[in-house]
Design a protein around this nucleic acid. Structure first.
Lengths: 143, 143
DNA sequence: CTTTCTGCAAACTCTTTGCACTCGT
DNA sequence: ACGAGTGCAAAGAGTTTGCAGAAAG
């Protein structure tokens, strides 16, 4: 029952907490392997789930894509770029959502959490240097 | 290139459009089979995707669950009951979201769509008759 | 030492796809 | 008749899990 402080758990936690780009489980594994070349994807999933249960990590589900993991646990939402698959944090989108929860609460619903995601094209992909940005993003996304 | 009016496509469309409970692809197949007993799950998926591309059906992605299909194509959001897996439509949650899109637009982001889902416990599951409601929901969910 | 955790691989779920055949048009 | 659509089964992607051995406390 007691949680052990294994090097794998710590490495997964440190990778996710220091990541600013919402990596997938697979990407987390690649990064952890820089330090622990033997770690398996199953262990990464188990530890990510453990951290998520403890609230140390947030899981971000995006349409039909693989789940992303986010070390920022404070209230914020996400923007998903349909061109380069980048995920950007949005800090101010939620202002009105507590009101929705309150209204639903009067109808007997208990709102525990919510998820707001905007889909579209990000600055890098829609701007004048879009071609270069897309190339860059693809490289990062498949690295 | 021309779209054909097959009985399978029509049956899938009619099932989803008349459903009020956000069925999964598997559930759609079960319902269609009442009329077309030999329809395959692959065909259901192909037709759901076709209808979604045409905007006649909305796909609702919920955390790590299977996708739900929604015949209501107008703007609305969803509440997901973590106890019975029921999905409820929420009509008024989005009022403030266009403003978020506008603000992001000024930063070079193009917002094409968004998804807002609230998670919690629904009226039937949190009320005084919760036990019965849960039993009912489970029966429906696994029917 | 005891118990949790790991690595591996197999299993699982959901969804997509290749192929030969069917059926709208 | 032509070719889009179907059924089937196999393949894919992402995630979970059983088990024997490793290692944390």
């Amino acid at each position: 029952m007691k949680q052990r402080q294994t090097r794998q758990l710590r490495a997964v936690r440190e990778v996710v907490e220091s990541a600013h780009d919402h990596p997938t489980a697979d990407e987390v594994m690649r990064r952890v392997r820089a330090r622990l070349p033997q770690i398996s994807l199953g262990t990464v999933y188990r530890n990510l789930q453990k951290l998520a249960t403890q609230g140390r990590v947030r899981v971000v589900y995006l349409a039909d894509q693989a789940a992303r993991y986010d070390g920022m646990t404070g209230a914020h939402d996400h923007f998903f770029c349909e061109r380069c698959a980048a995920v950007t944090d949005i800090m101010r989108a939620r202002a009105s959502i507590p009101a929705v929860g309150r209204r639903l609460g009067q109808s007997g619903y208990v709102v525990r959490s919510h998820s707001l995601t905007l889909y579209g094209v990000c600055t890098a992909c829609s701007g004048p240097k879009a071609a270069r940005a897309v190339r860059h993003a693809r490289r990062v996304a498949s690295a």
